[in-house]
Design a protein around this nucleic acid. Structure first.
Lengths: 119, 119
DNA sequence: CCGAATCCCGCCTGATACTG
DNA sequence: CAGTATCAGGCGGGATTCGG
């Protein structure tokens, strides 16, 4: 058991660990990434729909954040040749599984609150 | 199964969920929180030790971030009446369990890389 | 409709110096 | 040692305008 913990600590210390952690942080960072992901959890949406769904976001920010998420492989963008053009955004498979990360974050916070209030 | 997923979605939509998520985000945000937590994972440390351990952090930032983490119940501060004063920082119980959140973030990132490279 | 380009501001952060 | 004080710079992000 002791040796197991040491192995885990080594793993946690590795460069790979830190790099992977950064990947996840990049999906989270900024003010709008999570609201966008949250909105897309319910299915594909168009640009304007997202803009309406997410409170107070400007098209500039929405565009920038969507591009980030696309580069990170979390969101997929599809353009349809209609006039005017229609663009749809949806979560990739990885994007869909991201809720598991969020769930753990929430779980920790809830337990943390209980532990903190106990004092 | 379908009904279960709906319950989960409702849960994820609730105000409580978002608030808890924010709690966790506050523990993560900024450039220095995770390095500090990581450094304290190996045991209690004094201010100067942390400053030496964490690359390029200024005392100003270290002080501020430690104060944040203390307010969030993740770090505990102990002052000893020596001359000159000795101050030790250590993770609270919640702080120690936080690695479980980090592990899940890393796990997601690793799987995400595999899925993305497959294409 | 779907953005790109531009301008601008606040605050977060870094650097440096100083105190109990 | 363990921080605080002060100033300056950069960058995230808001507002607005314009183009395909």
């Amino acid at each position: 058991m002791e040796i197991i913990n040491q192995i885990d600590e080594v793993k946690r210390c590795s460069v790979q660990y830190v790099l992977a952690l950064n990947d996840t942080l990049n999906v989270i960072n900024g003010k709008w990434k999570l609201p966008i992901i949250g909105s897309l959890m319910y299915g594909k949406k168009r640009f304007k729909e997202l803009e309406r769904n997410i409170d107070k976001i400007s098209p500039r920010m929405l565009s920038k954040e969507l591009k980030d998420l696309e580069n990170n492989g979390v969101v997929e963008r599809t353009v349809y040749n209609t006039t005017p053009v229609t663009v749809e955004y949806e979560l990739t498979e990885s994007g869909k599984t991201f809720h598991s990360v969020l769930d753990v974050m929430v779980e920790w916070a809830v337990e943390h609150r209980e532990r903190t209030l106990e004092l």
